[in-house]
């Protein structure tokens, strides 16, 4: 039960940026600045919640910060067609430095900030559910929000024109432009949607189950989301499967720590699995090719 609950908790963190990143990947842009956006959002969530003593303001600040951050990314990578790796990594470094700088300048602390004035995002208590208490009760409201977002994503991804536009922007943007839909706009939409999701995830990180901002507190979660996106390769189901696998391993590792085992070992497995899958895929397809060439 403990593993189940902590899986859900970490899953939310990865799932939101993974879904957002899946759509930007569909439009042909791998967004590698997720880690940075998440960190910036987490900081501004604490800032907003601290100034106004309201989690709503925390969420709002986080989303706005993430939007600004992603708009910079969009401007450089979509409008200027700059290299996504340079800009993405530059933004990740920027996020880490900027949040530490702001911690020092605004709060006068070096590594972490917490205060009673920060309001947490509320938990949802559904009353007494008997044996289902452990399964459904007392999760953060963000968990339920994420569930709704996942369902919405599934629907939009495969049943609406917007979902098709996303894929068209990635596969053949000229055709999309010719059909009268601006591929530029579709790309921007996907980046902005991703920004909102990452913003929520960042807020959840800092004011979701704790009320604290630590420097570099995203601790690779953004990268895990990027890994899931790469593995899913734009496909909804595979992205979800990869995310769940990562979330489970993360939670399993943390709970194994109580038995003296080290979480870093279990965290290696999803990556090993992906490498194995990639090699298998590659070997299979190149064998197929070899057979075709012989015939």
């Amino acid at each position: 039960m403990y593993i189940y609950r902590s899986t859900i908790n970490t899953l939310v963190l990865i799932l939101l940026p993974a879904l957002g990143g899946m759509w930007t990947l569909q439009t042909g842009m791998l967004n590698i600045s997720q880690e940075g956006s998440m960190l910036v959002a987490a900081f501004f969530a604490v800032l907003g919640s601290y100034i106004f003593s309201s989690f709503w303001m925390g969420l709002l600040f986080a989303i706005i910060a993430s939007l600004v951050f992603n708009l910079i990314y969009a401007f450089f990578c979509v409008n200027l067609r700059a290299n996504i790796w340079v800009i993405g990594m530059a933004l990740n470094i920027l996020a880490s430095s900027l949040t530490i700088l702001l911690l020092k300048s605004i709060f006068g602390v070096k590594g972490s900030f917490t205060s009673d004035k920060i309001q947490q995002i509320p938990f949802v208590h559904l009353g007494n559910l008997g044996i289902f208490n452990g399964i459904f009760n007392d999760f953060s409201s963000i968990v339920w929000l994420t569930l709704i977002i996942v369902i919405l994503f599934k629907y939009i991804d495969s049943h609406t024109t917007f979902g098709f536009h996303l894929k068209a922007a990635g596969k053949n943007w000229r055709a999309l432009d010719t059909a009268g839909v601006s591929s530029l706009k579709v790309r921007y939409m996907s980046i902005l949607i991703n920004a909102v999701l990452v913003g929520i995830s960042g807020a959840y990180l800092s004011i979701g189950y704790l009320k604290i901002f630590n420097k570099d507190m995203s601790a690779g979660r953004g990268w895990i989301a990027v890994a899931a996106v790469i593995f899913g390769n734009g496909n909804f189901t595979w992205t979800i499967i990869a995310t769940v696998a990562f979330g489970f391993m993360d939670a399993l590792g943390i709970s194994l720590q109580t038995y003296g085992l080290n979480s870093n070992l279990t965290l290696m497995f999803p990556y090993l699995a992906i490498v194995a899958a990639l090699i298998y895929q590659g070997v299979k397809s190149s064998k197929k090719k070899a057979i075709e060439e012989k015939q």
Binding site: L267, M268, Y271, V275, L278
Partner: peptide
């Protein structure tokens, strides 16, 4: 085998870092 080296190296980064931390 034409496996994407960008993806592979990102994964190998994480494996190396988690392994050494372990």
């Amino acid at each position: 085998y034409n496996v994407n080296e960008v993806v592979l190296t990102i994964m190998l980064n994480s494996i190396a870092i988690y392994f050494t931390t372990y």
